[in-house]
């Protein structure tokens, strides 16, 4: 239980990041390598925002700013490459990731920034006989609420319908009068927003933010998205919980604890080789 609870909590946080990967991949067929860094930037913005304003202002502000950042990245770095091969867009994503990390390094001066304590989240509580922070319990609930909301949006609203159409067939939906750019921007806004929520929850468990702290959670979340079946939202959530729980359980055994990340990637390679479409993924047929 002592390891299961943090695992579920970490899984929830990865789920929020993984949804961003899955949504973007579903529509653009792009692995958004910069997503983990957007997550890190959200953490840093929180650090700077709380030094000037109270928490109840800074949290919503950071969520909005991160969404704007995601929108901006898409417009600046991915939109000009829409008609070029997928590999160039992926390289552009790697470039953005490099830029964000270096920018963060410059602004922070290479020092680890102490993350503000959100009192409500970091108070300790006792549940099922094990003591933990409140964030551990709140995360899965919040994730569930957000995911249900997201699924409802995608199923019943006009923009959600447009997103589904675009992910099914890019060109045909364009012919049907769907504004592709609006849909793609909406995807990035939603993805970045969720990553910002995830960053608030994630960094509450860690003392500080450094420019590279987005890379590892980003990669783990990506693995989660692939394990669950990239392009599928429930898949991303399930995959994230699998990754989070496995990581936490392995960390609990001292002899093999350094292999927690290696295991995550091993899981990725095994899944890719056995069932590349993941648990919930749809089968893709390549046409000549």
């Amino acid at each position: 239980m002592d390891y299961l609870l943090p695992g579920i909590s970490a899984g929830g946080q990865y789920a929020l990041i993984a949804i961003g990967y899955t949504l973007v991949y579903g529509i653009l067929r792009l692995i958004n390598f910069a997503h983990g860094d957007v997550f890190m930037v959200a953490g840093l913005m929180m650090v700077y925002a709380t030094t000037y304003m109270p928490l109840y202002v800074s949290i919503p502000l950071v969520l909005i700013l991160t969404a704007v950042l995601g929108f901006g990245i898409e417009r600046a770095a991915y939109k000009p490459l829409r008609s070029s091969p997928r590999m160039s867009v992926m390289i552009s994503a790697i470039g953005v990731s490099y830029l964000l990390q270096n920018l963060a390094l410059y602004i922070t001066g290479g020092l680890a920034k102490v993350y503000p304590t959100i009192k409500f989240l970091s108070e300790t509580i006792t549940i099922f006989g094990s003591t933990t922070r409140r964030v551990t319990v709140i995360t899965p609930i919040l994730v569930l609420v957000l995911v249900v909301a997201l699924v409802l949006v995608i199923r019943y609203t006009k923009i959600g319908m447009a997103m589904r159409a675009v992910s099914k067939d890019f060109t045909t939906s364009q012919l049907m009068g769907i504004r592709i750019n609006t849909v793609i921007s909406a995807t990035f806004v939603i993805g970045s927003f969720l990553a910002a929520v995830g960053s608030v929850l994630y960094f509450s468990n860690y003392p500080s933010v450094v420019p590279t702290s987005g890379a590892m959670p980003g990669l783990r979340a990506f693995v989660a998205a692939v394990v669950g079946g990239i392009g599928s939202i429930p898949g991303a959530v399930v995959g994230a919980f699998i990754v989070g729980i496995c990581e936490s359980l392995i960390k609990g055994i001292p002899e093999i604890s350094i292999f927690s990340d290696a295991f995550t990637f091993l899981l990725l390679i095994v899944i890719l080789c056995v069932k590349p479409t993941g648990i919930f993924g749809e089968k893709n047929i390549d046409k000549v």
Binding site: I31, L219, F222, V223, V226, D261, A262, T264, F265, L266, L268, I269, L272
Partner: peptide, 8 residues
């Protein structure tokens, strides 16, 4: 992604 994972 798989080769990236291998490197890690």
């Amino acid at each position: 992604i798989a080769t990236l994972g291998f490197a890690e």
